[in-house]
Design a protein around this nucleic acid. Structure first.
Lengths: 222, 222
DNA sequence: CAGTGGTCTAGACCACATT
DNA sequence: ATGTGGTCTAGACCACTGA
């Protein structure tokens, strides 16, 4: 019972994903013409579904030969270090502060503009993964948002809806965060700074994350 | 005079890229139907070209309104730190060595398997950018390749033709490389380790790059 | 030779925006 | 009412592969 009928090619994608799960890497799937017959759709529609799955790394094509299941170890996972499903976040504090020069630049607002700053930790299986500083421009937030701080920071949703720019800086763990990350003073770490923007390029969020190198590895596959 | 006639949609992409360069962000381009008329092609072909440019971050679409030029500051640039066109590479040495345990694991070969190791620097405008260690499995290389070491390491080509996995490790710059990178002993840096695989998942190249933090910033946009 | 992916056409209908 | 992007069809030709 679909509330709204999904486009056909989306349904085909879902069917194919299911089918791929039961196949081995490098095993061929149905040819595009077979798919068209099988789902009773045109070949262009079948092809559109396959296009999407190739693009997402589930399948690969060889011209004149066929379409094959990609090796699962070659997942495509753009951007970011991995976040486990059951990561536990704990807000250490949040506060409204005037922007200093650095933050004002990142968020493209004037110095002294009011900023909502949240500092939190992320734990997984009791181990500290990251220490995050999160900065919002207060005037872009509704009072509702501020009341529900914990809900505001749905980073995954933000990432999907925005353009994200991330920079990676090597540094020695800041003195005040070594204890919270449970790592030795003087440990070299990576600080990931993310700026999220809407489609017009206006920054909406600045995110500075200190990674525990014993717990988190940044990894990019394509 | 084309040696081989390019597909129409590729030509349209090139035309559109040229046109986009002369437009401002958020300025609309021709509608898909107009494009089809203008280039005397079918709408589906025009759409395919636009699809590609949207995917690469040159354009964005708003349903029922049109297609617009994306803000240039929001380029899509997957994977890797930026490499300038006129980066100068200098091979410090190359040698055939037996694989130690670490390298053998990365390249999925036996310990003692023969490996071609290259150490090189990358300079840009006289400044050292990175110190790279590059490892090939010798038996996968032709003697021709080995004769032309400088040509072997066309990394960009490798990346486009392979599946790349990159990991980022924070560390203190290794003693022996601090001088070559012209940075102080004890400086925290990022070490990028890349493994390139063919479509069957077989590793073909291991690449370990020590980044000069004063020169190179890792940056990811989506 | 039949089958594959890659490209391309000339239409079509839909839901939604703007005027 | 018109125009937009989003989807979809039922064909077509090409270059190439492998039996």
């Amino acid at each position: 019972m679909n509330e709204i009928e999904k486009p056909v090619y989306i349904q085909v994608i879902e069917n194919l994903k299911e089918e791929i799960m039961h196949k081995c890497p490098n095993e061929p799937i149905m040819s595009e013409r077979e798919l068209a017959l099988h789902f009773n759709i045109s070949r262009m529609t079948a092809r559109k579904a396959v296009d999407a799955l190739v693009n997402d790394g589930y399948l690969y094509r060889i011209k004149n030969k066929g379409t094959f299941v990609a090796d699962k170890t070659l997942y495509k996972s753009n951007t970011l270090y991995e976040e486990h499903e059951d990561t536990v976040y704990k807000n250490l504090y949040f506060n409204v502060i005037p922007a200093d020069k650095e933050i004002a630049e990142k968020l493209n607002v004037k110095v002294e503009e009011l900023i909502l700053k949240i500092v939190r930790t992320a734990h997984y299986k009791g181990q500290p993964q990251t220490l995050d500083e999160i900065y919002f421009v207060k005037k872009y937030l509704s009072s509702d948002d501020i009341a529900n701080i914990s809900k505001v920071v749905d980073i995954k949703k933000c990432i999907n809806e925005s353009v994200v720019e991330q920079r990676f800086y090597p540094m020695i763990v800041p003195f005040k965060y070594a204890v919270l990350l449970e790592i030795a003073q003087g440990t070299p770490i990576i600080n990931v700074q993310s700026i999220m923007r809407n489609h017009l390029g206006v920054p909406t969020l600045f995110f500075s994350s200190y990674l525990n190198p014993h717990q988190v590895t940044i990894q990019i596959k394509n």
